[in-house]
Design a protein around this nucleic acid. Sequence first.
DNA 1: AAAAAATAGCTAACGGTGTTAGCAAAGGTA
DNA 2: TACCTTTGCTAACACCGTTAGCTATTTTTT
Lengths: 186, 186
Amino acid sequence: MRTNILSVALQLVKDEGWQSLSIRKIADAIEYSVPVIYDHFENKEAILFELSMDGFRLLERTLEKNKKKYPNPEQLLKAHAEAYWSFAFKNPEYYQLMYGLGMPCSGTGKVKPQLNCFRDYIGQAIEGIVKEKKSTDDETCFKIYAFWSVLHGLISIVMMRCSDIDDSTMNKKVMDDTVEAFIKNL
Amino acid sequence: MRTNILSVALQLVKDEGWQSLSIRKIADAIEYSVPVIYDHFENKEAILFELSMDGFRLLERTLEKNKKKYPNPEQLLKAHAEAYWSFAFKNPEYYQLMYGLGMPCSGTGKVKPQLNCFRDYIGQAIEGIVKEKKSTDDETCFKIYAFWSVLHGLISIVMMRCSDIDDSTMNKKVMDDTVEAFIKNL
DNA sequence: AAAAAATAGCTAACGGTGTTAGCAAAGGTA
DNA sequence: TACCTTTGCTAACACCGTTAGCTATTTTTT
């Protein structure tokens, strides 16, 4: 039942967007009355929270695979960036929910730890790259945030249709180039 | 009246956030009944749209000043970045509305031209810097988006409390450093 | 088997939202 | 005086998240 509610909610979001997701629509879709939902979730936010957790888990699974596949930190970082990008555009509903794009933020505090999930993964890779170089901790920390920022920023801009580059492979190329340049200057 | 509605709405948002802004609260605040609002605005979205336009105008005014003040494109770019950053954190309500951070997107299409406002300003500065160097148009375009992305991404991350750097001057320093490094490698 | 308790599910409501139809009073114009 | 436009209102509609309280049904206990 719980699982059913979550998967139906996700499907509704994929079909009609976060804006139009409502408890009543979920109830209709699972063919139960409204209060049944509240037997399994405290409120709507709890449903959104759970879904966003699914999103973080989905992303993390790929990052974890990368970590095993790429011992070279530079290749690892590229793979992480690629994974982040393609996660965002293969699962825009998840990405929007997880990072509050164009929708009311879900967990406001509760999700906080998970929000740093990606930062931690790229942090590790970047630390691997800068290890031999003489960088202070602050510098490294800054670079991690800069790297995350450019990825998240670009994804946000493209996803919100701020970019007037229509071609999605072109947008991907912007990312690839930027990531390339960033790594070169680490 | 129209102006009054807008300013009251903005004040409500500053006090209680976008989430809790409602037509009825606006009506209460201006001490008129609800339908009066609809004599001046087609719907709630039209109010949000107008407010976001105010935001874009406010930002653009500073960028325009920068353009007159800094003939040197490198200094201009830095000033633009600084202006964008401080606009975002002095007017978080505006920034959230304009770029759909943690709230339903307002104009979804109607605002589109304005969304590129900042990109155009930094684009001009970056073109000024890159002019002497031999860069293709594509490369320049990519750099513009990369620069905008890192700024928007960092602002989003900090504003959504994804960053665990609490100190706001520290966050600012991340931006300054990143901008500095970016310009150096243009 | 009968009584009690727990469970599953529902209807109907409360207070909130955006939005609109339709009415009443006031003021200006012929 | 009669008409028309403006200004503002009340009251409703359909939707939202949420909850109180009621039926059945099933399980457990006596």
